[in-house]
Amino acid sequence: MWQYTLKRLLQGVITVWFIATATFLAMHSVPGDPISGERAATEAIRANLAARYGLDKPLGEQYVIYIGNFLKGDFGISFTQQNRQVNDIIREHFPVSATLGILAVLFAALGGVLWGALTAIYRNRLPDTIIMFLVILGISVPSFVFAALGQLALVNINNFFGVSILPVAGWGTVSHMIVPALVLGMGTMAYLTRLMRSSMLEIIHSDYVRTAKAKGLPAERIFLKHQLRNAILPVVTVLGPAIAAITTGGFVVELVFAIPGLGRYFVQAVQQLDYTVIMGTTVFYGSFLVFMVILVDLLYGWIDPRVRVQ
């Protein structure tokens, strides 16, 4: 087990190095000029700025410095907010994105299991039809349309009741989290509902459920221990990729709901060609995802010894 863990971690470190290098190379082949500002600067000022960001050195040297700083956990100073460290930006904004992501995954997982089970129980009856219609909507409507419509609906609800039931946008309190997390988790929830439904249906028809019924086990026990529990397994296995998709797919929701997450920051940085922030955020997200995947794998290995052998 230790050897396996060590091996996976080593692989992770190499992968992160690869991501860092790829990001570095990508950013340094971008046509354009991160120093250019609205008011044109003299050569002297440009040279000062270039020196400040180490852009005056040869590429190889810049790379060595970059990797060195990265090992120290230092991503440098932002180009647009020249008095802010990229580290500060990540530290302040990542928890927001993570909060949103965790909630969205929770919504998606719990909702998916609930609706999936319900549709399987009521298959081909009205609740099934209604939920599956919503699922189809959830799968086929782009998230930015959902976000915009969700917000519009909130305004109208608030105006209708004359009080603010849920905030329209912003961040800071628990009530601010609900709608954005729901919107963010919507697509995944729809996907998981479908998965759960077919997995449930397979189990409902399985021999051991029939046996359990024949044996006269109480209905609660059959449903909970035999059906639900086994049907959830395939849902659990796709949660890993779902987490990754939700964490980086949060941009849209963060943009529409004015949430100060790292995703929105990344998009802004791209639009302002803020080299250091783009590199820092990409490498940070990349590393985060790599180690999340390793963690999930290790957990599986812990639960299921067969994985380790492979």
Binding site: A26, M27, F266, V270
Partner: peptide
Amino acid sequence: ADFVVALPFLLFMILFQVVFG
């Protein structure tokens, strides 16, 4: 292939869009 899988998809999509121009 594992390396490429590990790249955060949307972030690199955006990055590539900027790089290619």
